[in-house]
């Protein structure tokens, strides 16, 4: 099922919920997860990750506003596009924006279609299910399309 708004588009498989929202003009955020997401959450999923089930996956892609030293395609945002497949070694509990027991996270800063973005992924559950989770996440993130800024 395709979700599209604010110049972002993603295909979510069955069992995944998601939303594409914008709190301020010219920035957008995507939330997606294989559980029922709260619909009034902050950019990095404070609420969503707090209600995540014991085994689950959560994705946030949030856009930054250029200016004040932030330049698309430069510095922290130099990488062009998402780096997929996700590297299991990059997931760690100390990379969580909002730490919760049993969860591990990773972040990527990048620029796509001239828009500076941050990918934030959280997985919950034992390492034995991590491979399956990352395959699903790679599949979902592989369908993400970013349009140039309006």
């Amino acid at each position: 099922m395709i979700l599209a708004a604010h110049g972002m588009r993603i295909e979510l498989p069955g069992g995944w919920s998601g939303r594409l929202f914008s709190r301020s003009p010219h920035t957008a955020t995507l939330h997606a997860g294989d559980f029922q997401l709260p619909l009034d959450d902050g950019e990095f999923g404070d609420l969503s990750t707090s209600v995540m089930p014991g085994v689950g996956s959560f994705v946030a892609v949030t856009e930054y506003r250029p200016g004040a030293g932030l330049k698309p395609g430069a510095g922290l945002f130099a990488p062009r596009g998402l780096r997929l497949p996700l590297d299991p070694a990059e997931f760690a509990a100390n990379r969580l924006a909002h730490p919760h027991p049993g969860q591990a996270g990773t972040q990527q800063f990048f620029t796509s279609s001239g828009r500076p973005l941050c990918l934030y992924v959280v997985v919950a559950g034992p390492r034995t299910v991590r491979r399956r989770q990352l395959l699903a996440l790679d599949h979902v993130l592989g369908s993400l399309r970013i349009e140039p800024p309006a």
Partner: peptide, 12 residues
């Protein structure tokens, strides 16, 4: 407000 939403009730 123009956001897109998918609520899937299969997930936990």
């Amino acid at each position: 407000t123009g956001d897109a939403v998918k609520l899937d009730f299969d997930g936990a």
